[in-house]
Each structure stands twice: as structure tokens, then as C-alpha cells.
Amino acid sequence: MDQLFAFDRRALDLDSGAVLLEGYALSMAEDLLGAVATIAETAPFRHLETPGGRRMSVAMTNTGRLGWVSDRRGYRYDEIDPLSDRPWPAMPSAFAALARSAAAAAGFEGFAPEACLVNRYEPGAKLSLHQDRDERNLDQPIVSVSLGVEATFLWGGATRADRARRIRLRHGDVVVWGGPARLTFHGVDALARSEHPLTGALRYNLTFRRAS
């Protein structure tokens, strides 16, 4: 796949079942960031702890019926925000519409996200190579939206030892992976110090999933 979108942005195959949609969310980026700020008023960003006791460098929150959480008990999805003991903020309709549209553009029709992980990267924050495997239904794709400062996406293979490609993600880019690529190891390299007119030194990432 190498199709042109508006402004000469392309859809680029990363692997079978994995597509980078350049600038796909660019036209609605300001609205997405405004919604992120509203979500954080109810469910503030926090640095989760891994089951091994390490503090994650990426701050996160959730929106949708389910939220992803991590602590000494493990990684899991929960309907309740452990900080407030209340349900997570409802997923904005624009979020769900973008996720469905991007999934369809990548060849995954009928995607119905019920969880959106909202990650906030400060300079130096990173995400080690990992698989997204806490979802019960691995037939559904992952839709990942980049906002703000550019990042280096690490796209690996079927094992953690496989060499990862380094892919630059810009403001408004969307990556979708599923099918044979669903359990590919991936991550984000340490965020370089930079500035974006909408987010300052920060990068935000919206990751949509069907969790149950």
C-alpha cells in the first residue's frame, strides 16, 4: 500500500497487517488535544508502576468503558479509575470515529474501540519494546495516534530479540496494526527535547483498543 492522502501524505506498509497513515489525524488534531485536556481534568495523568515495581517514564490516563492499569498485581483492564474509584471518562465521539475510520483505511472494517490509552511523553520518556497482549480479543487491531513533538517509533518483530526498525512519527500520524502483525514487538525511543506549537515539549499518543 502506497496511497496518497491530502497534502501528499501517504499510507505506508510497515508489515503485513501494519500501516502508517501519514497525517491522517492532522485536520482534527487541535480538537483531539482539547478533548485530552478535558479527560485529564476528571482522570489526571499518572505514572503507573510495573508489576516489578518500576515507575513508568510515560504518564498516562484512559478514556472509554475500560482503562488499562498497571501495579504490583499486574497489567489489566478495569472499568474503574483506581485514583478516583469512579468510571473512566466516556470516550469522545470524535475519538471513536477517528479510530474506526483509520482502522478501515488500513483494511480493518468494523473496529469498535472500547478503550483509549492516553500517553503523555516528556523529554526523555520512552516505551520499551513490548507486545499489546492484555486484550481478550486479539483479532481486533490497535490504532495509535501521534500528537505533538515528533517521536521515533520502534517496530520490531515476533520476538523481543528481533531488530527493530526506527520510524519517525509526526504530529497527526496514525499507525494501525492487526492480523499477522497484531503481536509485533514495538516501542518508542526516548523523546528528544523539541518544541511543538500546540503541545510545547510534550508528545501525546492515543492508543485505541478493543479489550474484551
Rank of each mutant, 00 (worst) to 15 (best):
A35N: 12
A35I: 06
A35E: 13
V36Q: 01
V36G: 03
A37W: 06
T38E: 14
A40P: 06
T42P: 03
T42F: 11
A43N: 03
P44S: 03
P44R: 02
F45A: 02
R46V: 07
R46T: 13
L48G: 13
E49V: 15
E49H: 10
E49K: 15
T50R: 04
P51T: 08
P51G: 03
G53Q: 13
R54T: 10
R54K: 13
R55P: 05
R55Y: 07
M56P: 05
M56E: 05
S57Y: 03
S57F: 05
V58R: 00
A59R: 05
A59I: 04
M60R: 02
M60K: 01
T61R: 01
T61M: 00
T61W: 00
N62M: 01
N62K: 02
T63K: 01
G64A: 02
R65A: 06
R65Y: 05
L66Y: 12
V69N: 12
V69F: 15
V69S: 07
R73I: 09
R73Y: 08
G74R: 12
G74T: 09
G74A: 08
G74I: 13
R76L: 07
R76M: 06
D78Q: 15
D78T: 13
D78N: 15
D81T: 03
P82I: 04
S84F: 15
D85A: 14
R86F: 10
P87V: 11
P87W: 07
P87T: 11
P87L: 13
W88L: 00
P89L: 01
P89Q: 08
P89D: 06
A90F: 11
A90H: 06
A90R: 11
A90L: 08
M91K: 05
S93Q: 15
A94D: 14
A96K: 15
A96C: 11
L98G: 02
L98A: 03
A99S: 02
A99F: 14
A99L: 05
R100A: 14
S101R: 14
S101K: 12
A102K: 00
A103W: 03
A103K: 03
A103F: 05
A104C: 12
A104R: 12
